[in-house]
Design a protein around this nucleic acid. Structure first.
Lengths: 126, 126
DNA sequence: CTTGACCTTGACGTTGATGTCAAGGTTTAT
DNA sequence: ATAAACCTTGACATCAACGTCAAGGTCAAG
């Protein structure tokens, strides 16, 4: 399939696909006329990339997952490098959550000072 | 005082001060030689900006706070527009926290699938 | 008079993942 | 033969808050 079809099937833009290729995440055979040719495997690679991006991973983070898939594994996350990225990402998310909770408390405190009774309910506590 | 002294006292770069001016957040009188001249009030404005930036506000968010201070109020947060920004920011932080918690769960679930027993403790639960 | 510490404006670089044009080649259908 | 719908590479634009030069003016001390 050519780039337009892959883009439609994967739900991404052709621009994004060329960018992924430029970043070395995917590759493409070329037809005689220079058009990129993709297979079903590429669709899985792109899908993996998109689902990782969707949960806050960067393209750099996605690299080991793609490599893992290309190495023949059924899941992109079943290689040691991918697991390491998972754990690094979890730690990072936890850091961000902590930072946000701290910031929320600070902002709420300032708001309380400026306008007692203005603060709403706390996140995650309905 | 000139820009260098204000920068030192406020703990910011001169570049930042010029940027704030360019964005219309602060203004400066000019000496005969063209140098910017600041007063103590400006120090308070910049301090307000910095403390807001420190908790995740944008310069755009800081605008009503600065206006509030310039209007003569003791606190930048004691004007209705500032309170509105506070509340908008709190809601936004809550959204981000919720999004992060969701993402954390998703990532943890995927990691569990790929590597049972690899997931560490949950954020905020020691 | 010259060094050095100030100050000025202007403009490009940073970061990530694309969007959007530009300017053109290819293929299919009419 | 020509429009329509593909494809190509290249390169600039976006968002925020500055960092970092560049090229030069100002001013006090030695």
């Amino acid at each position: 399939m050519r780039i337009g079809e892959l883009a439609r099937r994967a739900g991404v833009s052709t621009r994004a696909l060329r960018y992924y290729e430029q970043q070395g995440l995917i590759t493409a055979r070329r037809s005689a006329n220079g058009y990129r040719e993709y297979g079903e495997t590429d669709l899985r690679l792109v899908s993996e990339i998109r689902s990782l991006l969707a949960v806050g991973f960067t393209l750099e983070d996605a690299r080991p997952f793609v490599a893992c898939l290309r190495a023949g594994h059924a899941s992109g996350g079943s290689c040691p490098e991918s697991v390491a990225v998972y754990q690094r990402k979890l730690a990072q998310i936890d850091d961000e959550i902590r930072a946000l909770l701290t910031r929320r408390a600070e902002v709420a405190a300032q708001l309380t000072t400026a306008c007692p009774g203005c603060v709403l309910r706390k996140a995650g506590k309905p």
